[in-house]
Design a protein around this nucleic acid. Structure first.
Lengths: 137, 137
DNA sequence: CTGGTTGCAAAATTTTTGCACTGGT
DNA sequence: ACCAGTGCAAAAATTTTGCAACCAG
């Protein structure tokens, strides 16, 4: 169990109950949409406001605590920021799995860029397919 | 100038004026959001309805004529479906450039997947940074 | 204490839907 | 001529905003 109050304060955000809930909920599921975060937290703290979730997700993305994971044909999910990795995404249920880069993947990918971009600040590598669970349903 | 009426009919879509306009507008700019498509087409055909754009974008994505390009922190853009490629995306202006894969990139990327996915149907590789133009403003 | 944060309610924005009319094939 | 496709207007869904009360530091 990570110390999210520290993570928040390191990023100049007060460690409120709501923010702790958001981080713990995302951590529990890995990747969640805004409305799923709201639904989950509502189960244990029914008075939480959706507006608070919105404000905080935006702010935490801005401060680099969270990362947005946009998904083709679905709503963006959010994850706790971590080392760069690949996403395996099920086109049926939308479930997302993280997968580490192999050594040298970043260098390999960055070498494909050209002079349109000054430098690469962030990479997104997503592989889409049907996951095992959906295939068996 | 590609024959979009053929492309549409191959995908069981009638070649209406509105669809032709959508495809030609996207083709002209490369990558556009739904509201930009609407704004552009309105300039030459002021009575076009935004609902028509929405219905058609969804349908053309579904039929594989268009591809959605989700972008972190911005609205999705749409491009005409083409061979797999990388996107270079400016985090400031949102401009998108296409870049061909190097040989063997697909094999390399797919080899990172694991048994969560049965097989990979689509790959997304996006590199984010500040583009030259934004850097000079 | 006090400035940032919350919850609520209202506003703004985005997307979807229903339906009579139109136009491609 | 038929039926998919269009435009409009209304509805639904999503996101943002303003503000009084609240609470973490």
């Amino acid at each position: 169990m990570t110390d999210y109050s520290l993570l928040l304060r390191e990023n100049d955000l007060k460690a409120t109950f709501q923010r702790m809930q958001i981080l713990e909920t995302i951590s529990k599921f890995g990747h969640l949409t805004i409305d799923s975060i709201y639904t989950e937290i509502s189960k244990v703290h029914s008075s939480i406001s959706l507006a608070t979730i919105y404000k905080n997700i935006l702010m935490m993305v801005d401060r680099g605590v969270l990362t947005e994971v946009p998904i083709i044909g679905k709503k963006s999910k959010y994850e706790i920021k971590k080392d760069e990795h690949i996403h395996l995404i099920c086109i049926s249920c939308g479930d997302v799995h993280d997968k580490s880069f192999k050594d040298r993947t970043i260098e390999y990918i960055d070498s494909i860029s050209d002079d349109f971009l000054l430098s690469t600040t962030h990479r997104e590598i997503n592989l889409y397919g049907v996951c095992n669970r959906c295939n068996n349903i």
